[in-house]
Design a protein around this nucleic acid. Structure first.
Length: 646
DNA sequence: GTTTCGGTTCTTTTT
DNA sequence: GAACCGAAAC
């Protein structure tokens, strides 16, 4: 019943990859060459061939990519793709660990710690050891080191020594904090993001019977963005695919931009050696951008010599050259963009056709102000993740504690909401309760009540009955109801008194409660919430959604997306490439790839913004050098515009 | 000893 | 903003 005309829908490069025979396949897909299309059709092709979709695994790096591909595949073969395993590495690891985590000594209701939780825990540990404040790295820096060690399977000691090379940091202290961090996570029955991956791998390595089951189960494995896999992920896939060897990976080493979290594009380069008999396909025909933009992209990436050679072939007709816009400073940059946007609007572009991309969130500060002043709608993928905002985490803390009574972090957060209770008091009570607090159980609830200060006891009285009602009203399968009652009985009043922007926060909370209805257990909801990014929140949360407007985004978050018109902010040395990354000493290869990703997002027009000066905090100015990535592009490929002093 | 509050400083990239 | 620091208040 083949009702898909593969030959008509795909070009010859894509068709070859889609209909590739069984065995290892490597698809090198340059930007805009129909990578998603190819993967989607590959899924459809397999299903049409009679493969049971439940035995196909599709791994992606973002939830968005997973959803997009599943939706598109469904469009092709209808309900036929139902049951396909699709999602991020973290999701898949979580799915397996929820079944088999007990083999590694976890209780199956373990909590997933997000960045914010990990940070609190590390801070608390450093504080207890008197390491906070003075010459000791901040929690985020420590977590970066721990994470890199985990994702590259290297000892923390070595990674820390390399990272703090010429700084007087006591490496032994760093290792001690790490050990304590590991122990505390165990105690509270929690895993951070890296633990999900590491334990996912450990599960396969240490438990042959589990591995064998999944090896047998998955007939076909497809991996998207393979250039961004780290050692752990690559090994995990290798184990899983070992038996059937029907592994198809897609990627582009030019777009590898996650080495700072352990990604190693050598995984993709060495794939043919690791899998003898690999068939390699190259997709180089670019449908997205006009030839002038591709010429700039090709010229830019030529600065990175040691990569797979490939170049983007244009099919669209000639158009305009990308523009380098010289402006005075950040404010003028914002003014120029606003003016240009108005022009584009007159030309018939809608606001959804335009994106502004930048290296770091704070680069867009002036622009945000200017857009707001001009009442031009914009959507921003902000720095703070939706699910990590204080009010969102607050309202979930009760549910978290109920689901996992060992969740120290949830307990401390929840108690911190009570008057006269702060971090210290909460930690003391937690210790007095023996590192566990089950408020579903009347004895547990009483034990807690007795230890609270009088002022807190009054407030707590409003919350406590929800714990008792949990079993009685069978709230276990209704996470939203727990949050709803918590807000109604206690948090709403607290929020009014605490936040000056109560209304906005209340909207978020309502959207969150709405969001929970799609989950059948508290634990499923909590896992999902930790693993979703704010990008997903934007599309998943009804109240957040329906926005349309100019997109403001970091280049990292823009990966895989495209717009008709793209502005790149601050194309100057020190901003893009960022000075921090240059100081890391790893060269500028990754920043160049990032610049390449930015340029290849544009379909019709590309603007590289180049302010002459940066205002410093003390009111002075600092002159900026044009970005080395722009200087490397032959001038004949670009058009200059001098805005001068507005 | 802790909490709370007000002022100051500083922003890389993310599952 | 939000994390951090210091000082007042409990």
């Amino acid at each position: 019943m083949s009702n898909i005309d593969f030959e008509k829908a795909l070009n010859s490069e894509q068709l070859a990859a889609v209909t590739a025979p069984d065995g290892p396949v490597l698809v090198i897909a340059a930007a805009g060459t129909g990578k998603t299309r190819t993967l989607t059709y590959r899924v459809a092709y397999l299903v049409e061939k009679g493969v049971d979709p439940r035995r196909v695994l599709l791994l992606t790096f973002t939830n968005r990519a997973a959803r997009e591909m599943l939706e598109r595949a469904q469009g092709l073969v209808g309900e036929g793709v139902g049951g396909l395993w699709g999602g991020t590495f973290h999701h898949m690891a979580n799915r397996m660990l929820r079944r088999h985590g007990d083999l590694l000594g976890y209780k199956l209701d373990y909590t997933i710690l997000d960045q914010d939780d990990s940070r609190s825990l590390v801070r608390a540990i450093a504080d207890e050891r008197g390491l906070l404040g003075k010459h000791f790295p901040k929690p985020d820096v420590l977590l970066g080191v721990f994470g890199l060690a985990a994702n590259t399977s290297k000892p923390v000691h070595d990674v820390a020594a390399a990272h703090f090379e010429d700084h007087p940091i006591n490496i032994e202290d760093v290792v001690k904090v790490w050990k304590a961090y590991e122990a505390r996570k165990r105690q509270l029955n929690g895993m951070d993001f890296d633990d999900l991956l590491c334990n996912g791998l450990k599960l396969f390595r240490d438990h042959q019977e589990v591995l064998a089951k999944y090896q047998e189960h998955f007939q076909y494995i497809l991996v998207d963005e393979y250039q961004d896999t780290n050692t752990i992920q690559a090994s995990w896939v290798d184990l899983l695919a070992e038996k059937k060897r029907n592994l198809l990976v897609v990627g582009d080493d030019f777009q590898s931009i996650y080495s700072w979290r352990g990604a190693d594009f050598r995984n993709i380069l060495s794939f043919p050696q690791r899998y003898p008999g690999t068939v390699v396909f190259k997709l180089e025909t670019n449908y997205r951008s006009v030839p002038e933009i591709l010429a700039v992209a090709n010229a830019c990436i030529a600065g990175n010599p040691e990569q797979f050679q490939k170049s983007l072939r244009a099919v669209r007709p000639a158009s305009k050259k990308p523009k380098v816009v010289h402006v005075r400073a950040g404010e003028e940059q914002a003014l120029y963009i606003v003016q240009k946007i108005k022009e584009l609007r007159r030309k018939g572009y809608t606001m959804n056709d335009v994106a502004v991309l930048y290296r770091a969130h704070f680069h867009a500060m002036e622009l945000q102000l200017e857009l707001a002043r001009e009442r031009i709608p914009f959507v921003i993928t902000s720095g703070v993740r939706f699910f990590e905002q204080a009010h969102i985490k607050d309202v979930c803390s009760l549910l978290r504690l109920i689901v996992n009574p060992g969740d120290e972090l949830a307990f401390i957060r929840l108690m911190g909401l009570m008057p006269k209770v702060g971090e210290k008091t909460a930690a003391k009570i937690w210790a007095a309760l023996g590192g566990r607090c089950d408020i579903k159980d009347a004895t547990g609830a009483r034990a807690l009540r007795e230890k609270l200060p009088a002022a807190a006891r009054v407030e707590w009285a409003k919350v406590e009955p929800i714990g008792a009602a949990y079993e009685k009203d069978s709230l276990a399968d209704d996470p939203g109801e727990v949050i709803f009652r918590f807000v109604k009985e206690f948090y709403d009043e607290y929020a009014v008194e605490t936040f000056e922007n109560y209304d906005r926060r209340k909207e978020d909370i309502d959207a969150l409660i709405d969001f929970t209805t799609r989950f059948e257990t508290g634990e499923a909801f909590l896992s999902e919430m930790s693993l979703l990014t704010n990008l997903d929140a934007e599309t998943d949360m009804p109240a957040q959604g329906q926005e349309s407007g100019i997109k403001l985004s970091t280049v990292h978050q823009a990966k895989g997306l495209e717009w008709n018109v793209v502005f790149v902010l601050w194309a100057v040395d020190g901003m893009f490439p960022s000075s921090r990354s240059l100081n890391e000493g790893a060269g500028d290869g990754e920043e160049r790839r990032l610049f390449y990703v930015a340029a290849t997002r544009a379909k019709d027009e590309l603007f590289l913004m180049m302010p002459e000066v940066r205002r410093t905090r003390d009111g002075g100015v600092m002159f900026c050098e044009p970005s080395r990535f722009v200087r490397e592009i032959p001038v004949s490929l670009l058009e200059d515009e001098n805005v001068g002093f507005i």
